[in-house]
Design a protein around this nucleic acid. Structure first.
Length: 496
RNA sequence: GCCCCCGUAGCUCAAUGGCAGAGCGCCGGGCUUUUAACCCGGGCGUUGCAGGUUCGAGUCCUGUCGGGGGUACCA
């Protein structure tokens, strides 16, 4: 990227030099504030209410506005909690007033003095001392319109944070949501664990992995695509309730709902089944919403979504029949189903597996209808290699997915714990992979099967895409706005 | 992966194929209660990049890089 705006940088560097010539350290090691901006405002309001003078405080922050009027100036400083106006008069700060000439928007400054209310009614610090804390050498985004360029917002998120206050609030909401999830599981006796990110087999979901290389072991390793199979090993080991909130990696496309790395919550509970997990989910989501946003009704895309449970259960079979007019039982093989789908105007080919065709039907006809929270239950066995088959109908599994705002937010099943059946299912996945090249299928994991052979109790498992839950609860329509550093293409030259 | 749209000053944006502009920011000057401070003076630019058409290209064409949206894929 060609270096532009050189004169702006040069002018700031010139100020830096002038400061050094005057023996002002532009990057002092420390500065101790007594109050944040919000605490200072609060302290003043209390003093005012008590009829006493404003307290003496020391504050610090980034200069976001600067109004110089000869021998007096106003500087608005900002910290993570808010803003405070500094009123700097040369007769109050003395020689330090010279510093004002070399300040720029974006610099960090600290000040000590007494809190007052100005003629215009704004709580301000009447500075008696002013200290430069860090010189900014690059110009900040435009102060009124803010940073609008979406590319730069994501590439240089710190500028977005400086310029657009609402980003702070979105990330605080994300933090509250994750804290609330932890509190929910902790309160129910679940143990939070960490399982490997670098794995020898990228199994536990249907997705393309990232490959990496371990030099000392001289072998390829993969970034995990799920935490599922390791958490089940812990169930085998006797940890009856475990959960993990972790980053997983899928080597797939990037769009408003997908980022190559995202945060996945998975939980496993021994002696629970998918009905228990449904009750858990319809309790968890509204509770997290309440703690993180203060309510259980969410406005999303112009609709009010009521999260309070219980949520309706609809079988996948019935939902497809209702919304797509297709009876899955009439089309037990992929080619028959593909014919039917083409007859009703859905792009379907004989190169697609039955599971993928069903997934397409759900995505096209059913998902968009599920605006209010609902569980789709009982998925066909070929779509669910890790789920236990229904005792009543072996073509279906005890699996559900939860939807809200037309978005999938949870996936869960009564876990398959018969090691021989599990081996057959994973072998079938490997066969399907050969038959349907280009489709994402699960993978054989011998070490996991060995664990299952030692015996896993009946277990209910759950996966929730945390980023999508944050989107739902904060009304964001793109995943990039709920993560700080979404993936962006590398430009040849890193700008630094 | 495919289709469509976008890329102009540090930032936010203008400019029928005809001299590249405005606001903020920045630089110089003034100002001791301002609020996107104000007043006076100063455009600070390889119009993403490389070609092409044209008397003349920010504008039209081709390619390329980056971004956005859609679609495909996908917890």
């Amino acid at each position: 990227m060609p270096q532009r705006g050189d004169e702006l940088l040069a002018s700031r560097r010139a100020k830096l030099e002038r400061l050094r010539e005057r023996n002002v350290d532009p990057y002092p090691a420390r500065f101790h504030r007594t109050h944040t901006t919000a605490e200072a405002a609060h302290a003043f309001t209390e003093a005012e209410a008590a009829g006493t003078d404003g307290p003496a405080v020391t504050v610090a922050g980034r200069i976001v506005r600067l109004r110089r009027m000869g021998k007096a100036s106003f500087a608005d400083i900002e910290d993570s909690e808010g803003r405070l106006q500094l009123f700097i008069r040369s007769d109050a700060v003395g020689d330090e007033y010279a510093l004002v000439d070399d300040l720029d928007l974006g610099d960090f400054a600290g000040a000590s003095g007494t809190l007052i209310r100005t003629k215009m009614g704004e709580i301000s610090l009447a500075a008696e001392s002013l200290t430069l804390l860090a010189k900014s050498l690059r110009p900040p985004p435009e102060k009124f319109h803010g940073l609008r360029d979406v590319e730069q917002r994501y590439r240089q998120r710190y500028l977005d944070l400086i310029s657009n206050r609402e980003v702070h609030e979105a990330m605080r909401a994300r933090s509250r949501i994750i804290s609330a999830i932890r509190a929910f599981f902790d309160a129910r006796g679940f143990l939070e664990v960490d399982t490997p990110v670098l794995v020898p087999v990228p199994a536990g979901a249907m997705a393309q992995p990232f490959v990496t290389r371990h030099n000392a072991l001289d072998r390829d390793l993969y970034l995990r695509i799920a935490t599922e199979l390791y958490l089940k090993r812990l169930i085998v080991g006797g940890m009856d309730k475990v959960y993990e909130i972790g980053r997983v990696f899928r080597n797939e496309g990037i769009d408003a709902n997908h980022n190559p790395e995202f945060t996945l919550l998975e939980s496993y509970e021994a002696y629970a089944d998918y009905n228990d997990v449904m009750r858990l989910v319809e309790t968890l989501v509204p509770q997290v919403a309440l703690e993180a946003t203060g309510g259980t009704n969410i406005e999303y895309g112009g609709e009010v979504i009521r999260l309070t449970g219980p949520w309706p259960r609809v079988s996948l079979h019935d939902a497809i029949e209702q919304y797509a007019g297709v009876n899955l039982d009439d089309h037990p093989d992929a080619s028959s189903l593909a014919d039917k789908m083409r007859a009703i105007g859905v792009a379907a080919t004989y190169a697609e597996s039955r599971g993928r065709l069903i997934d397409k039907l759900v995505g096209t006809f059913v998902e968009p209808k599920l605006v209010q929270p609902a569980f789709l239950v009982d998925y066909p066995v070929e779509m669910s290699p890790l789920a236990k088959a229904s005792p009543d109908n072996p073509r279906y599994t005890e699996r559900f997915e939860a939807f809200a705002a037309g978005m999938e937010i949870a996936n869960s099943f009564t876990e398959l714990n018969d090691p021989d059946v599990q081996r057959e299912r994973l072998a079938e996945q490997e066969e399907l992979r050969k038959q349907y090249q280009g489709e994402d299928l699960d993978r054989m994991d011998e070490d996991f099967l060995t664990a299952l052979e030692h015996g896993m109790p009946p277990t209910g498992g759950l996966g929730i895409g945390v980023d999508r839950l944050v989107m739902l609860l904060t009304g964001q329509t793109t995943i990039r706005d709920v993560m700080l550093f979404p993936q962006v293409r590398q430009t040849g030259e890193p700008d630094a």
